[in-house]
């Protein structure tokens, strides 16, 4: 039956692209949930712009994954017809929006990574990935700027905003380790010059973060226990609900054009 999940032949390169595509889609989806509900109209505009950038990145990466796989999957099948266990995003991006501080801390953690990541990927040996990186690095650089300015204001704003921001940092910190993890398949791609080793970015990521968090008069947790699982489809409970919404049309009306 057409509502069934598609099967994806997850060769290392397909899986690699899917993981980045899922990161972008799920985070874009989360940010799109703010549209119409942000703390001020100016921020509705900003969050929607970021969401649109991320959804755009996801589409390119899904299309690349589908083409690399070489079956009859496409961006929509990959987005709408994989179940929660087939999704490959990091746990960080699926965490609920929470309050504005939680959304902004999630943005800061992710974009500080994505900024470095896409800048490095511009030199990928795969020309499509390099082209996607060339566009994404500019977008991510702005996302980082946007999140940083907010974190500084929330941290150094009122007692309440400071407490909320610190609370969000504590809450989300354990989800950051996964961004730097690498498995054997990825190691081979790194060796081949197609992917970059995210582990090499962690030092600079931490430096960027420390500067911003410091300016915001906030603190990074000492705890270094990190949650893992998203990359292999072991998610938090939140993702299933997100997908049931995201995929509801394709699941209810299988196989139709919209």
């Amino acid at each position: 039956m057409a509502t069934a999940n598609i099967q994806v032949s997850e060769t290392p390169l397909v899986l690699y692209a899917l993981r980045r595509a899922d990161d972008a889609l799920i985070l874009g989806h989360r940010l799109s949930e703010w549209c119409g509900h942000a703390p001020m109209l100016e921020e509705d505009m900003a969050l929607s712009n970021i969401a649109l950038d991320l959804i755009g990145q996801a589409r390119e990466l899904y299309t690349f994954a589908a083409r690399t796989e070489g079956k009859d999957n496409d961006e929509d099948k990959l987005a709408y017809l994989r179940d929660v266990r087939q999704y490959r995003n990091v746990l960080l991006v699926e965490q609920p929006n929470g309050d504005f501080a939680q959304t902004m801390v999630r943005q800061l953690f992710y974009s500080a990574f994505a900024d470095l990541y896409w800048r490095a990927m511009v030199n990928s040996g795969d020309t499509t990935l390099a082209a996607i990186a060339a566009r994404s690095e500019k977008e991510s650089a702005y996302h980082l700027r946007h999140a940083s300015e907010w974190i500084i204001r929330l941290g150094d704003g009122t007692d309440e905003s400071h407490a909320r921001a610190q609370n969000a940092i504590e809450h989300l910190w354990a989800f950051t380790g996964e961004m730097f993890a690498v498995d054997d398949g990825e190691r081979a791609l790194i060796h081949a010059g197609i992917a970059i080793d995210p582990g090499t970015l962690r030092g600079r990521w931490l430096t960027t973060l420390s500067e911003i968090i410091g300016e915001a008069t906030l603190q990074l947790p000492q705890n270094d226990w990190m949650q893992q699982g998203g990359r292999s489809g072991r998610h938090s409970e939140h993702l299933g609900h997100l997908l049931s919404e995201l995929q509801s049309m394709q699941r209810t009306f299988p196989g139709l054009a919209w």
Partner: peptide, 10 residues
């Protein structure tokens, strides 16, 4: 729910 954010920015 946005009030505390606007207050922080101010």
């Amino acid at each position: 729910e946005g009030a505390w954010v606007r207050e922080a920015a101010a």
